[in-house]
Design a binder for these strands. Structure first.
Length: 131
RNA sequence: AUAGUAGGUCGGUUUGUCGCCGUUUCAUUGCGAAAUGGAGGAAAGUCCGGGCAACAAAGAGCACCAUAUUUCCUAACGGGAAGCUGUUUGUGAGAGCAGAGUAGCGUAACAGAAAAUAACCACCUUGCUUUUAGCAAGGAAAGGGUGAAAAGGUGAGGUAAGAGCUCACCGGUUUGGUUGGUAACAUCCAAAGCCGUACGUCUUAUGGGUUGCAAGAUCAAGUAAACCGACGCAGUAGGGUUGCUCGCCCGAUGUCGGAGGGUAGAUUGCUAGAGGCAUAAGGUGACUUAUGUUCGAGAUAAAUGACAGACAAUUUGCGAAAGCAAAGAACAGAACCCGGCUUACAGACCUACUAUUUUU
RNA sequence: UGUCUCAUGGUGUAAUGGUAGCACUGCAGUUUUUGGUUCUGCCUGACAAGGUUCGAGUCCUUGUGAGACAA
């Protein structure tokens, strides 16, 4: 099996403390329709290089069906395109937390979300390379 | 055939690739591999009822909240079934709503004489003044354009004028009885002149401890201003017991000793149950009983998905039709579990029935 | 997930079932050489659908939207 395209539970970002730290200290930028927050974490003892969370606000999408669908699409887009980011991070021997917030009011299809996800990942790689 | 009413059932199928969560087996320091399972009729709203869990229990009176036709069903219910009465609606099959009691009290805007122990106008009697009217006292609910609602209705008798004042017929109410029904109630008979309506207050009966799985339990780390015991200020201040009253209970700061709570994390609670399906019997029915058979989500910043293709109900456009082209499934996603209710829903099917038109 | 609250002109906020008021804002006029202030007038209304009632902003039911708490 090609391990590059998997997205198991251990790569999800969970825990109230770690998420609070990400949103308090992390850097943010907007790659419409997503707002991306990330933080280079040096204190964590986990072995996964990248931890990711995805969220869709209840205010913009009232029905749970639509929220779940958008979260699934974003997870799927990340899963299929994460290999380039993971390679860079492993080269640098660091760990990173990322959060993707959906901020558009419209429900997009998979193709456009995947396109925007590639843009967002490339921008993260650039910002990390500067440091 | 078209349009509908009531009840019930279903609510996309399939191939490949890449993924997610649980379980089992194999392998194991670890990474992993294979097999297998993985959203609903409403999972929704959180409107009722119950299970389960923790805490509290000393009660009495008043208050508060909910319910309120009858019989039945149910673990229970404010739910359901079958009826009864009234009312609204539909041509109809049907559908919606209301339904304990009324002795007392309150309210009924505007309009109208008056919203109820009714006398403003008009009517009648008597007296006085006056000259065809005015004033005063009384009688009288028969007439008066209003209003949502006007003092049971029609006719006759009666009277100074009138009036259920009396009578006949009709409508209602109450009481007593007959027949039918388990009952609500209905039918019939008799008697009583007994005769406005709506809402609220009030009264009666029944039920109601509080909080909710983020309840609660366990684990390793680590320690209080919280807890327990003894002594004292002192059974005082104060607090609890449902809102109040009575009653009952607890009870402080200090000293000494003991014990280990919350928060974050992990595990558990956690999925076989008032379960489903079939047959038979009972019942008008909700439902019940018996027998057989069948099952397997359990996540926790929260899985059940993405892409590509095939089929297809159906929809739209063109067309007389055949057909061609395009689109390609509604409402909606478990979070402790059940029973209901309510709300959303493209379309398909079954049973019974209704209206209209045509044919026999 | 659970427990609750609210909805009245553009904004804020009242009213016992009986003509929906008040303040600010906006518009027009008045005053002024002009603008502001003042004064006068006007416009702008019940979250939606049912029910109870002679009559609902108000009472009842269902839905919609917004907010609070456990956090």
């Amino acid at each position: 099996m090609n391990k590059l395209n998997s997205f198991p539970k251990s790569e999800h970002l969970c825990g109230e403390i770690r998420i609070a730290r990400l949103f308090n200290q992390g850097q943010a930028f907007i790659a419409y329709p997503m707002r991306v927050v990330f933080l280079i974490d040096t204190s964590s003892k986990l072995k996964e290089p990248v931890s990711v969370m995805v969220s869709v606000p209840k205010k913009r999408f009232k029905h749970a069906v639509n929220r779940n669908r958008l979260k699934r699409l974003m997870r799927e887009a990340y899963r299929l395109n994460k290999h380039c980011l993971v390679e860079k991070i492993e080269e640098k021997q660091i760990q990173i937390h990322i959060a993707f917030n959906y901020i558009s009011n419209d429900e997009l299809d998979f193709i456009s979300i995947e396109k925007k996800m590639k843009v967002a990942l490339n921008k993260i790689i650039e910002l990390i390379a500067e440091k």
